[in-house]
């Protein structure tokens, strides 16, 4: 059921959660559970959450994303959040939601490159 709103794609050792539309709190929890399970199942070393389409990230979303990053780290995968838009970033800092301790990158491409560098993998491109 979460797959519709944020399908998780597997690309080598990386999982890409591509958010397609605004997420309800339940969707976020579903995404969290799915990602944690998938990291374990596929022995993934990197996770990218693409939030390009979101025009708002509230405190619950920010907390859930931080939780995902911490949880996946415990089971061996780095998480990068990509695609936060300028307006969203500005609104978030004003609310004090800074996703501290979470990696961020401009977009999917940069996010994947960041994981490659951090994990010492061969560059794909």
């Amino acid at each position: 059921m979460n797959r519709v709103r944020a399908p998780v794609l597997k690309l080598g050792e990386t999982l890409i959660a591509s958010v397609q539309e605004a997420l309800m709190d339940a969707d976020l929890v579903g995404l969290r559970d799915e990602l944690v399970a998938d990291v374990k199942r596929y022995r993934a070393t990197g996770v990218v959450i693409d939030v390009t389409v979101l025009d708002v990230l509230d405190s619950f979303a920010a907390r859930t994303i931080r939780n995902i990053a911490q949880m996946t780290r415990l089971i061996g995968a780095r998480t990068v959040i990509v695609g936060i838009q300028p307006d969203v970033a500005f609104a978030m800092v004003q609310l004090g939601l800074t996703l501290e301790g979470t990696e961020t990158a401009l977009d999917l491409e940069d996010g994947l490159a960041l994981l490659d560098i951090q994990l010492g993998r061969e560059r794909r491109v």
Partner: peptide
């Protein structure tokens, strides 16, 4: 600080 943190959210 806000400018710096907002830029970080965008990966800079």
């Amino acid at each position: 600080v806000q400018a710096v943190e907002a830029a970080r959210l965008m990966g800079a």
